[in-house]
Simulated scan of single mutants.
Amino acid sequence: MDKEPLDRIGRLGLTVGSATCLEGAIMGKRLFRVEAGNCCDHALAQASVLMDSARRASFIGVMDNEPALIWASYFLGEMAKALMDDAHMGISKKLLAA
């Protein structure tokens, strides 16, 4: 992403910082939130990497009977979903403003 021209960065919009993931110990509290102001293009690309990692961890965890990898897959999937949800909100916001 560092090599992309500045006019291409954020062409889909910027993350809004609303999506969260992973339940906290206190009811209704979440552990993580997507940071606002990140490029939606990059957020979606990173979500794809997280989803691939989750898929691989899930497969290996099941095949090798490794519960820790199955839990890692769950956490990676939650993070990917938060990134995609927040990027979607940023894209929608940009489209509505246009």
Results as ranks from 00 to 15, higher is better:
16 V>C: 12
98 A>I: 10
84 M>Y: 10
1 M>E: 13
86 D>V: 00
4 E>T: 11
61 G>D: 06
72 A>H: 02
57 A>G: 06
42 H>E: 14
69 L>S: 05
15 T>M: 04
97 A>V: 07
54 A>H: 00
28 G>M: 03
2 D>Q: 09
80 A>I: 03
49 V>I: 12
3 K>Q: 10
77 G>Q: 00
44 L>S: 00
59 F>P: 06
80 A>H: 02
60 I>Y: 02
60 I>C: 09
42 H>S: 14
88 H>M: 11
39 C>N: 15
11 R>T: 09
23 E>Y: 12
62 V>R: 02
5 P>H: 11
4 E>N: 13
72 A>G: 03
61 G>F: 08
55 R>Q: 12
30 R>C: 01
41 D>V: 10
38 N>H: 15
87 A>Y: 05
75 F>I: 08
53 S>H: 08
27 M>A: 09
41 D>Y: 10
71 W>Y: 12
80 A>Q: 03
73 S>M: 07
23 E>H: 09
35 E>Y: 09
89 M>D: 13
98 A>V: 09
34 V>A: 00
6 L>A: 13
10 G>C: 02
26 I>T: 12
16 V>K: 10
20 T>C: 14
12 L>V: 00
87 A>K: 08
23 E>K: 14
35 E>W: 04
96 L>N: 10
40 C>K: 03
19 A>S: 09
